[in-house]
Every structure is written in C-alpha cells, then in structure tokens.
C-alpha cells in the first residue's frame, strides 16, 4: 500500500479563466483557519495576534494584513486567518502561536477562494452581490450571499477582489461569477 499516498485536489482544480480582459482564478495556495475569541479573552487574543503575526485585530468590516497573512472578521467573536500554506497542518501552526488564547478550526477545505480582477469586475459584482462594492475601501470585507450561496468578499485593489464560498458548491459559485462577467453589457 506504500504507493497510496493521497494527493490533494483543489475544489476547482486550480482553475484560471479569462473573460475579455478579466480574470477569474482559484487560489488553492491559501490556508484558512478560524479563531474564535474565548469569552472575556478579547484583549489577550488581540495581543497574541500582534506578537504572533504583527496583525491588528480586524474590525467588523475591515480586514487587516501583515505580510502574506490576512485577518478577516466573520462574526463578533470569530475571525479568519488566511495565509499561504501548502500542507494540511495549518491549524496546528496557528494553534502553536496562539498558545491557547483562541479556539481554532481548520477551514481551508470548507471554502473555495476565487480572485477576480479586470475592468468589468465592478459591473460583474453589481449582478452578483447586493452590497455596494463600488464604495468598498481596499481591504474592506463582508460576509454576504451571492446567487443563494453564502459568500465572503474582500476588496484587494480597485479592480481586484477575493471571493470565498462553500467548497461543496464551488462549481455553482464559479458558474455564478463567470456568468456575471459574461452578462456585463
């Protein structure tokens, strides 16, 4: 059985698409770990984030970034850390640095991450997202829904956004994003 080592396959196989001058790409290089704040442990967790990652605690609608690591608030007492990580031990690495100051759950496999960019991006988002994405600041984040699927959106640059949705419906999510670009007129 020695040859049966399991190989990972990303939800969309690491797809990259071009629609006109726009691009949709799956980010399969990122790990996601959620950190829940223990009751009464907000300040200690904020401090650990700072010492461990040099990150400030994200506020409800604004993610924070340091180096390759981004922190997004998903609930009043929960954040996501997103960072490049190849092996399935992201949870352990975060836990180690947290040293018990937050409850972690590996969410890498729960989500599909798409990075979308290009000149039609805001127009595509008008058809996909009920939030006012045109006025999002760089780094602004929101948890919302797109075509009946729960989604997370973060503005990375003027014409570049990161979209996250459930990995089991990754195909439907990609289809929704792709259709939105195709329908821009």
């Amino acid at each position: 059985m020695a040859n049966l080592t399991l190989t990972a396959s990303p939800a969309l196989g690491g797809i990259e698409l071009e629609i006109g001058q726009n691009r949709i790409a799956e980010r399969s290089d990122l790990a996601i770990v959620s950190i829940a704040t223990p009751l009464g442990g907000k300040d200690i967790l904020a401090k650990t984030l700072n010492t461990g990652w040099s990150l400030t605690m994200p506020d409800p609608i604004m993610s924070t970034v340091e180096g390759n690591t981004r922190a997004i608030r998903t609930s009043p007492d929960q954040i996501l850390l997103i960072f490049p990580h190849g092996t399935p031990d992201a949870n352990a690495t975060v836990q180690k640095k947290l040293n018990g100051t937050g409850y972690t759950t590996d969410q890498t496999d729960a989500w599909v991450i798409l990075e979308i960019s290009g000149p039609d991006t805001l127009k595509a988002l008008e058809r996909l997202c009920l939030l006012d994405t045109a006025t999002f600041e760089i780094g602004q984040s929101a948890r919302t829904m797109m075509e009946h699927m729960g989604a997370l959106i973060i503005r990375l640059e003027d014409d570049r956004f990161m979209l996250m949705s459930a990995s089991s419906s990754a195909g439907s999510f990609l289809h929704a994003v792709e259709t939105s670009y195709n329908y821009v007129s």
Partner: peptide, 14 residues
C-alpha cells in the same frame, strides 16, 4: 450569552 462556547460549520471541510 455568558457560556463560553463557539460554533463553526465544518460540513464542507471534511
């Protein structure tokens, strides 16, 4: 509200 308990869905993760 003062129980220390946290929930997150992992249906799609595993």
């Amino acid at each position: 509200p003062d129980l220390d308990v946290h929930l997150i869905s992992t249906t799609d993760a595993w």
